[in-house]
């Protein structure tokens, strides 16, 4: 153990392990080639448009209708996911029931199932001759080939985000706090409302934002079930595809930049939420 005392203390820690330059260099190189340079191509392509052209491309009525659908459906889906994701996480952490392990594993299905498969499968279920669609048809409820289908596909896609962000926080939550609340005379609902919910709120918001962000960019699962009617059930990513198929590269790029900027903003919001969550859990323990 002699080396411990003789090692000069001012020597920077990073010199001890080799490979800093190699790994950081490779990381930056690969990041630039795969992500940064291609993304900058998007920005530069936008600058070939004049401001008027850009505004025209991103705010034509058909594009505006697609924003309303994409954001509206993503928001509704994320709210549903927040409510049911919290419920599923709660049930998985707090209660025991047969098949719990399988349900827990199944929650990740939307991460693992290719979106195109989810899309055709949901469509088959909800179409008027499908298992669910045929039950609802007599009541005049149509879930496929319209906006309802978009929301349902986005609920499927976003479900794991909320469950997987809330679950670990619920697992770590200290039961002593709940016991204390009960001892002080709180009802179970009050304990949930004022003790448990504030603990999981940052994680819940993070999961909500992640599900929302994912839903805005989602393409594969939605296009099969949406019906894709212009002005009615056409999502923004599909607008980009449509413009590309007409060789309107500049127009496609302009709409893509709008989506990209929104993604950036949401990414920063999610980062801030996660920092908040860390501070919360740090302050508690």
């Amino acid at each position: 153990m002699d080396w411990l005392s003789t090692q000069p203390a001012r020597r920077p820690a990073r010199r001890v392990l080799p490979g800093f330059k190699l790994t950081l260099g490779f990381t930056l190189f690969y990041l630039s080639v795969i992500v940064l340079i291609p993304l900058s191509a998007l920005v530069f392509k936008t600058f070939t448009l004049t401001w008027e052209q850009f505004v025209f491309a991103v705010s034509s009525p058909r594009v505006m209708a697609s924003y309303r659908l994409t954001f509206g459906a993503s928001f509704i889906a994320a709210v549903v996911n927040a409510v049911f994701g919290l419920l599923v996480a709660w049930v998985l952490v707090r209660y025991s029931f047969p098949g719990k392990k399988i349900i827990d594993a199944l929650v990740d299905l939307p991460f693992a199932l290719p979106t195109a498969v989810a899309g055709i499968s949901l469509t088959a279920l909800l179409a008027s001759n499908g298992w669910v669609g045929s039950l609802l048809e007599p009541y005049g409820i149509q879930l496929a080939f319209n906006r309802n289908g978009v929301v349902i596909a986005l609920i499927f896609i976003g479900l794991p985000f909320v469950v997987r962000t809330v679950q670990p926080v619920l697992e770590d939550a200290e039961k002593e706090l709940e016991e204390a609340a009960t001892c002080l005379g709180a009802t179970r609902w009050q304990t949930f409302r004022f003790v448990i919910f504030p603990t999981v709120a940052p994680a819940l918001l993070t999961g909500f934002a992640m599900a929302f962000a994912r839903a805005i960019g989602e393409y594969g699962s939605v296009i099969f079930i949406a019906g894709n009617m212009p002005m009615v059930s056409e999502i923004t990513p599909l607008i980009i595809i449509g413009k590309l198929e007409q060789y309107d590269y500049a127009g496609a790029t302009a709409v893509a930049v709008v989506l990209l900027v929104i993604s950036f903003v949401l990414l920063m919001v999610i980062n801030a939420l996660q920092a908040w969550q860390r501070r919360r859990s740090g302050a508690q323990s």
Binding site: T27, A41, G217, Y219, T253
Partner: peptide, 22 residues
């Protein structure tokens, strides 16, 4: 740098394809 590594997760797949076309 950590944020940049995560970036492709928040980019729409359609935009991801588009950048390589560009």
């Amino acid at each position: 740098l950590t944020t940049l590594v995560d970036l492709p997760f928040s980019v729409s797949p359609v935009v991801a394809g588009l950048i390589y076309v560009l």
